[in-house]
Design a binder for these strands. Structure first.
Lengths: 340, 340
DNA sequence: CTGAAAGCGCTTACAG
DNA sequence: CTGAAAGCGCTTACAG
């Protein structure tokens, strides 16, 4: 294995000071008034030898690693894996690498992840925070490390945030359903105290109140197996006869829910209208296809990355906060009726 | 922002040499015959101050970063995001972090990714290689960097590999279909020259030959939009009347295919039996639910990570190769008939 | 048992 | 315009 070329070797070979090589490499040749001739000679040599600067050494002296940490709830989820894809594309364009981790909403795991990444001196953090991680986030911030929260936020922590207008998501969906003459609209959600789930529920509650509808909510535990969830949803529909529309507060709940409806023999959209919160590839494949409150994945990722990048590149003062609330798209497919 | 504690500061505070602190931190106290009393004193101090060693500095002097690179085709794909999840869990248990990248089967992008990660001195690579990347992989290997290929391999590069027995996957599925009296079994696949796709086709070709069935293959371009794929599949079925069973060579093809079948009005499993290559959450939700040739995701990830870890930890000589061929599980659901 | 010193490969004031 | 030197925070022979 041939020894890797270092800046020292180059300096020696070319009989110049290594600082000169360093300046040229970092595009400071003009600034340091290094002759064009020398600059070209060094650049040519580097090109020929295929020199790659050692980023570790660079990071150690500059304190910047050009790495960002992305902590999501679970990387294999549809929503998060798509966000991860878009973030990756954006990051690589700007020369950043991404280290990811799945919090699984586990406080200890998240804490450990943050500490490990911190020891690695990642430049910034994008995190879907589990409830209870407030102190750790504050500690990052107090060390002047930029943190952007997304999907859900922590009321007690003031930091940058990018997320959906979840309230409007359900509210507008119900408004639409009312327009199709729905009289009994249910919400199937998770019994979670994360802000995004609470907002979805609030949107529902405000809407049913506003439109004088009965409030019908089923909350299923997050940890459920698919079978258990399906069973609970089936029981719920059997107990509450006459529901003519339902909003599932996550796409996974919708998948279980559709199975329940099939089993019960309720047909979409004639017997019941269905809208899922958070779109999914397969909603288009089902017959009938499933209407959804879609989170604009690409736009969200762009906002997330730009918010972080502005801080990383000092375009914005650290203490200045940016909260980006993105409006959902209500995508109407065949599981809902036409407006009457 | 309080200055971060360094090994130097600790040494000074405690009036010991920094080498002593370093040895204690790395569990070499006994080996270096440092007194228990001193060891305890240092450990206690570190505990109290919450000292975290700077991994960058450590990496620079040891040459190890404890980071591994995972390059998949696209992180948002069902298969890859699930592999990513399992790999992450395994890696973090062993103290490794993962940097991911999506090759998108683009040669230049992949090349760039590899070079950037290399400059960051990641310890090892797990890669789903696009065709054409042979030289770059060889270059990694010649620098003694461990590389494990997965999902598909490169015939010209001898390296570690973990993948499915794709041939058996389709062959056994057809054998099963023949057992349910299928007489005209089609294969819908991608026109790809990646090894895993070729093996799936080979399995099909061998099986139809063996069971004296006609060979009916549709190859759709990889780059297709979903609509285009659906259209092509619809045309194929209309042109080839009487197909009584079909294997879709990827789960995404199956999703498009199911839409086509719905549109044509072919019912599963009475009119046609359907098996998808590569399982997917939603196959269980469809009515009828979809049978699949499943890749054991967890087992694959374990094999992948262990193969890499053995090399990273020198349990195995670099030049010794390990090829792991994992058997698929044929999961029978409602889209296929019972064996007659 | 412990300490002084060199080295990993960069960056960046500072002096000329 | 260019060079010598210190520093980033670790590890690890080497000497005592």
């Amino acid at each position: 294995m041939k020894k890797k070329l270092s800046i020292n070797d180059i300096a020696k070979e070319l009989n110049v000071a290594k600082s000169t090589v360093s300046f040229i490499l970092n595009g400071k040749a003009k600034e340091k008034r290094i002759s064009d001739e020398l600059t070209q000679r060094v650049l040519k040599f580097i090109e020929e030898k295929g020199y790659q600067p050692n980023q570790l050494a660079k990071s150690l002296s500059t304190g910047k690693t050009k790495m960002i940490c992305v902590l999501v709830e679970k990387i294999s989820d549809y929503f998060f894996s798509h966000i991860a894809y878009h973030l990756e594309t954006l990051a690589y364009k700007s020369g950043y690498k991404i280290i990811y981790g799945s919090t699984e909403n586990d406080l200890n795991k998240t804490r450990e992840l943050i500490n490990m990444l911190r020891a690695r001196h990642v430049d910034g953090y994008i995190i879907t925070p589990p409830v209870g991680i407030e102190a750790d986030i504050k500690s990052l911030l107090s060390d002047n490390l930029p943190v952007v929260l997304f999907d859900r936020y922590l009321p007690e922590v003031s930091t940058d945030y990018v997320g959906l207008d979840n309230y409007n998501g359900t509210f507008n969906a119900i408004e639409f359903l009312v327009g199709t003459s729905a009289k009994k609209v249910a919400l199937v959600t998770l019994n979670s105290n994360q802000t995004q789930m609470l907002e979805r529920k609030d949107g529902y509650l405000s809407a049913v109140k506003r439109f004088h509808l009965p409030s019908l909510i089923l909350e299923v535990p997050f940890e459920n197996e698919v079978e258990t969830t399906t069973k609970q949803i089936t029981d719920f529909f059997k107990k509450n006869q006459g529901i003519d529309a339902v909003i599932f507060a996550t796409n996974y709940l919708a998948l279980s829910g559709i199975k329940s409806l099939n089993q019960i023999g309720l047909h979409m959209p004639d017997d019941i209208s269905v809208i899922a919160f958070d779109d999914h590839d397969v909603f288009n494949i089902f017959s009938p296809s499933i209407s959804a409150i879609a989170q604009p994945l690409h736009e969200m990722s762009v906002q997330l990355f730009e918010t972080l990048l502005d801080k990383l590149e000092d375009k914005v003062r650290l203490k200045d906060l940016r909260k980006v609330i993105i409006q959902p798209d209500l995508i109407l497919r065949e599981s809902t009726k036409e407006v009457s």
